[in-house]
Write a protein that binds this DNA or RNA. Structure first.
Lengths: 347, 347
DNA sequence: CTGAAAGCGCTAACAG
DNA sequence: CTGTTAGCGCTTTCAG
């Protein structure tokens, strides 16, 4: 392994100078700078992580993690936060810390509210979930200008300035669901789609788009109905609507239940007609796991919520601590297929 | 974060003594030992990895990685070794190194051959693939007695002495294959099983056992035929046997092709009858990936070969360097389901 | 603009 | 049996 001392020796300068060059910090004469850079690249210098890890303690870094907290969202984001929390423990070795910043997820984010939350916390970097970020565009712009690094996780936003987006490819998730819907079926495939939102949530609509796009591979597949939530419905009425749609469409043999955690809908559908294959997204609940293991739910597509939380912090920390840029501006979490026989895999 | 210096201070001893206690090294008076242990556990002491990482360089550790190398095995073990090699790069930061030790995989391992390979290499720890280990029981016993740590990877052995087994649950892989075979099918499911071995390889027979055991969930599923390799057949004759079996059994609608990399068999089957769903194990070849994406192969179950290589080295290194015992004596690699829509995922 | 030096936490060699 | 010390590679502060 080549060390910075080795480079200093060969370049006839001190380690301090090597460090200044390699971190673009302070002034160094152009000749020395060029020499150091050349020797470093010739020798293939890679800074030692253990050495850095010790030295970085002086920075006392603080990284904020925003997330929506309310009854409906909790199950999914609980797992995101759990993943972040586990990673956060490892930060104490570097004298760094994660600061968890819940916001009221029952109502849309208010930019001023978020601004005060993060200013109060005194942070070196921040992770935003996409839904929160959506209402904070001005704030994000300011962070970019001030040079405070931030990432977006779980759902993306068409802005620039973020260090990375961490999350799955929702269209692909929809395409995988479609592939599973088609698997093994020789007869006509008639799909019902139920989504417990107003049809405007980015993740759901991307999944449905992916599903319907992938349908072109399967000429015998068609969508019989789509049932969304709407403003004039309450929870029970939405359920009733799903029930009647299923009953009105006896030809339906596959239901794509788009939203996470809606296992009560799955039970409802299963109770009407046992021969409908139900495909869902995200496995976040023990009831749901049992329904997969028993066959009530045919398959589920998961998007690694824990990894989303952990990677968001990790990318920010490594950037602050070691100056690392993420390999790509999109860290794609794995989309895994869960069926009865591997439902014990991920929590 | 609590440091060993903090413990030393509170216990009124030196850091050297704390270190001796915490690593069971050298002699310490019983009272001091008890005091140090108590304070350490009260404070929840966790050694700092960065500090250790620097200090461990003095050990100059060498870890051996045995693997079979021949034309037939190469594709799978190439990926194992690639994973190990990538991890090995990170070892240079700790002044440690992995030593790769291929053996002739075309013939069964000879214990004496393996013994001389590893003695020559001068190793602190060794990773054995299960097939090699199977013929080296005496050697493993000696390693255990000498206190040289070793792990088994890819396939397990009923012995004790290894630090861990790193690999998948082959029976579970078979059960997953069965679940996929059943997915969406309402008609009778008739399965043909083809395995490019003599029916005695541990991994294949475990997969078939899992598959057939899981069949009890599906009363309408049955096995029409099983075709293995045998000593009096060459490659082409084996293929011909598979072909006639498929032709003799027009009722077959699912083929379980057990061995990795046998995509030529898959093509053969697909060419006979396009409506047979083919299920395979391990995705190790670009041809195979294309066959999944095009739908010629319906699904594949993968076992993370790269992780097997990397984790084998990691477990040994962390044991030697930091005295860590693995959390469990079986590191289970993930069994993931690959279909056309997610075939771009793992290489 | 540059070098020297201190110190992060841990381990091991060396004295006592 | 126990304390002291050097040093792993890196960053940063302090002099110059």
């Amino acid at each position: 392994m080549v060390t910075s001392a080795e480079i200093a020796l060969r370049a006839g300068v001190s380690r301090g100078t090597v460090d200044r060059v390699l971190h673009n910090r302070g002034k160094v004469s152009p000749e020395k700078e060029a020499l150091v850079r050349q020797i470093a690249s010739e020798l293939g210098y890679v800074p030692n992580l253990a050495g850095r890890g010790l030295a970085v303690r002086k920075k006392s870094l603080r990284i904020g993690m925003l997330y929506p907290k309310d009854d409906r969202m909790t199950p999914f984001f609980k797992k995101v936060v759990a993943g972040a929390q586990e990673y956060a423990e490892s930060l104490s070795a570097y004298n760094a810390a994660a600061v968890f910043l819940p916001r009221n997820g029952a109502v849309p984010a208010k930019e001023e509210e978020i601004r005060s939350i993060i200013e109060e916390a005194g942070l070196d970097a921040i992770a935003f979930d996409g839904e929160t970020a959506m209402n904070c565009r001005q704030l994000l712009k300011e962070l970019k200008e001030k040079g405070v690094p931030f990432v977006l996780y779980n759902s993306d936003l068409q802005i620039d300035g973020q260090l990375a987006y961490i999350g799955c490819d929702y269209e692909k998730a929809g395409r995988i669901a479609c592939g599973l819907a088609a698997m093994g079926r020789k007869d006509k495939i008639c799909v019902g789609i139920a989504s417990h939102d107003f049809g405007n949530v980015v993740s759901s609509s991307a999944r449905i788009r992916g599903f319907e796009d992938e349908m072109r591979r399967f000429p015998d597949m068609s969508v019989s109905f789509r049932q969304f939530m709407s403003a004039d419905l309450n929870q029970d009425e939405f359920f009733e609507h799903v029930r009647s749609r299923v009953q009105e469409h006896p030809e339906v043999n596959v239901m794509y239940v788009v939203n996470p955690g809606d296992y009560s809908i799955c039970r409802l559908i299963h109770d009407i007609r046992r021969d409908i294959a139900i495909i869902t997204n995200d496995l976040i609940d023990e009831h749901q796991r049992q329904m997969i293991q028993s066959g009530e739910i045919a398959a589920t597509i998961c998007q690694q919520p824990e990894v989303q939380g952990a990677k968001s912090l990790e990318i920010l920390f490594r950037h602050l601590a070691f100056g690392e840029k993420p390999q790509s501006d999109w860290f794609r979490t794995r989309l895994s297929i869960i069926i009865a026989q591997n439902a014990d895999e991920e929590i």
